[in-house]
Computed example of a mutant assay.
Amino acid sequence: MRLAHDFAAVRPAAQHCCELTAHGAARGPRPEERAALMTAWRRDLARLLAEDLSPLLSGDRLEVNLPEPETLSGHAVLERIGPVAANALLRCGVARETALVAFDFATAIALTDRSFGGDGKRAEPAPHQLPRSSALLVDEIAAIIALGITRASLGDAVLPAGAEPASEVIIRSDSAARLKPFAADAEVLLFPIAIANREGAEWHCLLAIAADRMERLLPVPGRTGALPARREPRQPASPLAAPFAGVPLPLHVVLAEVDLSLARLQALAPGDRLPLAMGRQVPLLLGDKPIAHGSIGTLEDRMAIRLTRFPAEGLAR
């Protein structure tokens, strides 16, 4: 019995092009699918930010607008942000992609004012250096944006066991270029974020994400696992609570003031004496604002002030 047989092909074997073989698995969504995913991502991020930023801004009912992004080079994005701003480099999503969020100083101070119950209106000109309280608030907002990006990237999905999505502020700097968020010639998506409350205050910031990283941050249909936990709702900011309570404030006491003419001032020489009239009550100042008055005395062989009176409006204003 002959068991060996010669087999001949009935027809030629199929020959697939490299686009279907080598690169087929890497092919992303079609343009119309990507546009739908981007729209869903922007809608979800805007909703999450409106919810999560509200406790930080005195419980305001917020509306967040996240329009279509501009596509610019990395160099053009850094020029748009400017040489000095409150910038934070974020790490987001399952793929731990980086993103850049930037606030101009005037906006950062206005948001700080609103977090303490003020009207949140911008004041010009902006300072050359950001107060520490505003820097802390920007870090809080940046962390909320990082978590919002991660949650929007996951959509309604849950993660596989062991997957750890990121949502954190890596580093903050007044110089966006120093953070090196993307190459100068990279294609970058620039999202202008507008945050508004019901009292007419509006604040703007910029979110910049390299185009190739944005592709990995878009929600993937059918993904399964668990969403990262939302941030615990926080109470409105208080100067007596962390982290603001630890900000050092330089105070000074004015013991006496004297008026001199310009001629007398120019004639002063070593050994001259100026009579000082010290009042019974001297002011304790924070900058140029008197926050209390008191009487001068001693405490354990050191000069001291006993506080006797506070302004009627208190320390809150």
Rank of each mutant, 00 (worst) to 15 (best):
V138R: 10
E97S: 14
D156C: 01
R213H: 04
H5Y: 04
K289P: 07
P233N: 05
A4N: 14
L315I: 03
V188M: 02
T224C: 06
R230E: 14
N65T: 15
K121A: 15
R306P: 08
V84T: 11
S173V: 08
F182A: 13
G294Y: 03
A40C: 07
V253D: 00
D6T: 12
C92Q: 07
V282D: 13
A40D: 12
L285R: 09
A26F: 11
P219D: 01
A40E: 09
P12L: 05
D272K: 04
E215C: 08
T224H: 07
D60Y: 11
D44K: 05
Q266V: 13
P221G: 02
F191K: 02
G294F: 03
R151Q: 15
R122C: 06
G162Q: 05
A13M: 13
A256V: 11
L100Q: 01
R213I: 01
S134F: 03
A76V: 00
A316P: 02
A152W: 07
G246S: 12
I170P: 08
R213A: 15
A237N: 03
I170S: 05
T98G: 01
F7N: 09
V10L: 15
H5Q: 14
M278E: 05
M278Q: 04
P69K: 02
A208H: 10
V169Q: 09
L49S: 00
S175K: 12
A157H: 13
I291K: 00
F7Y: 15
R231D: 15
P290H: 02
N197C: 13
T224I: 06
I170R: 09
V258A: 00
G82R: 12
L159N: 14
A277E: 07
S134A: 15
L207N: 00
P192W: 06
P83K: 02
L3N: 14
C18F: 10
A85D: 08
S153V: 05
E51S: 14
E19T: 13
L260Y: 03
L268K: 04
A50L: 10
A102S: 07
A86G: 06
M38S: 12
I193F: 09
F182S: 10
G74Q: 01
P181M: 00
H128R: 11
A123Q: 14
K289I: 14
D272G: 01
G118H: 11
P192L: 10
L20A: 13
V247L: 09
E199I: 11
L57G: 05
P83Q: 04
A26D: 12
E97Y: 09
S167G: 08
C205F: 07
S58E: 12
I149A: 08
A194E: 12
P83D: 06
A269W: 06
A316I: 05
P243C: 05
R280I: 08
L268I: 07
S295W: 01
T107V: 01
G148T: 07
